[in-house]
Design a protein around this nucleic acid. Structure first.
Lengths: 254, 254
DNA sequence: AATACACCTTTACGCAACGGTAAGGTCAAT
DNA sequence: ATTGACCTTACCGTTGCGTAAAGGTGTATT
């Protein structure tokens, strides 16, 4: 079975403009171009379009979708299972919103009270997963449940904007650290800037900051080889250098 | 309780840029501006922002939201009930997608077969409501269930693009008809164009076109005072004029 | 009083993901 | 040959912000 652009658009419920755009950006090329210059799509393109629409439904940008679906290692079956999980999460999110609107209706009918914070439950995007992945269960066991869960709680209250600030900060730390590393001096101005940025980054996660805790964390970056590996990814020795910079910054040595 | 822009943004899980933009376009103005020029929001603004976020979640554009929430007749409690309904519909839509991905997983495991049409179930937006409102139950009883349900079925298969073409066509019919009416001659070129556009419009709904059916429908526009009222809304006599134009166009008179 | 950091303001450019349109070629039915 | 529906490319417009620059304000600290 072959499809012209209008036939495929109709089948999938998208516009012909969308399909031409997807061709242009390389996310969904036609199987072939016929002698009149018409795009002709086949079964493989139908299947890919379905995958694309799942990703779109989940809010994934087209650049990312392109990277995913055009990778030689792309596993369609695995992707479908991931879609399923994400769709169920999205459904849970919707359930939160429905619960929210139910509560708000009850509020207007005078049956309950409701805090302003409760009024926005369900609207905030879940960002816990990224944080858990970054630290994982190990950090819980080593540094105590309360610290990590307080950190998670703080992330939950982050706005998208703050979250992106955190991400940007993390990148900035890496960049500054890479530059500072070249000086070889942890007391250097750049190294101290990296330590300062790290403190700011921590402030998103920690309820309270202390030099002791900061220095202790820095030491952990060296003691724990997984963290060492993370920081040393591009340049061996970076984790030790960061520890030393933080020790100078905090005026402490463990 | 008063909020600065950052406090409100954090409460609601939106960015400060969003709130400034909403101020700029008049959808959510602050309660007051303090002596430093800072925006200060109050409880009423918190409540309105919640409504706005519900509409956003449902995909309503900001221009439309502005028209709705700033109307003097805006009923917050009623809006909440409408949100609830729409959120439940959205959840059903998500359920269709989840069912779709389940079937597609089963397909990749070789347990079932699946048509290409099935692969896109859940992605298409529901457009049935508009069609039902336009014609209602009356048309079913008068012209038979099969015709209307076939028409509905056809709408279900329309793309969003086609749907908007239909809407644009309807507007074009009215515009052309209004111009043609001024000539007073149903055989005039403009009047014949309106009849032709009407035929094209019908082709979105009818399985098969016939001049007899077209002429019959046109006669109904005059016989049934509700349709007459619809066409005569801006200019009395338009329904009769359209009937006559269609009769000339189809070469038939009932 | 000075300093530093986090907050605030306005202005303005950039971006993603198309929608919509113009100009012109092709297909298929009449 | 004609007509209407389809196809092509190219290009401007739209929405809802993100991001950054330049500069003012608030508050805690020294």
């Amino acid at each position: 079975m072959e499809y012209t652009i209008q036939k495929l658009a109709s089948l999938a419920g998208v516009s012909t403009r969308t399909l031409r755009y997807y061709d242009e950006i390389g996310i969904l090329k036609p199987a072939r171009i016929n002698s009149s210059g018409y795009r002709i799509y086949g079964q493989a393109e139908v299947n890919r379009l379905q995958q694309i629409l799942f990703y779109r439904e989940l809010g994934v940008g087209l650049d990312s979708i392109k990277d995913i679906v055009t990778a030689p290692t792309f596993d369609g079956a695995k992707a479908l299972r991931e879609h399923r999980e994400k769709l169920l999460e999205k459904k849970e999110q919707l359930d939160l919103l429905i619960a929210n609107v139910d509560k708000t209706i009850a509020l207007t009918e005078g049956r309950i009270t409701m805090s302003n914070k409760e009024k926005f439950e369900g609207f905030k995007k879940k960002m816990i997963e990224d944080n858990e992945k970054k630290y994982g269960k190990e950090i819980r066991e080593k540094y105590g449940k309360d610290t990590v869960e307080a950190s998670n709680a703080k992330v939950m209250n982050m706005t998208q904007e703050q979250y992106e600030e955190v991400t940007a900060l993390a990148e900035q730390i890496h960049t500054t650290l890479a530059e500072a590393f070249k000086t070889g001096d942890p007391a250097d101005e750049l190294a101290q800037k990296a330590a300062h940025l790290h403190k700011q980054w921590l402030s998103y996660y920690w309820k309270e900051y202390s030099e002791e805790a900061h220095a202790g964390l820095a030491q952990m970056y060296v003691d724990d080889e997984r963290f060492t590996a993370y920081y040393d990814k591009k340049q061996p020795g970076t984790a030790i250098f960061l520890r030393d910079a933080i020790h100078v910054y905090t005026g402490l040595k463990n």
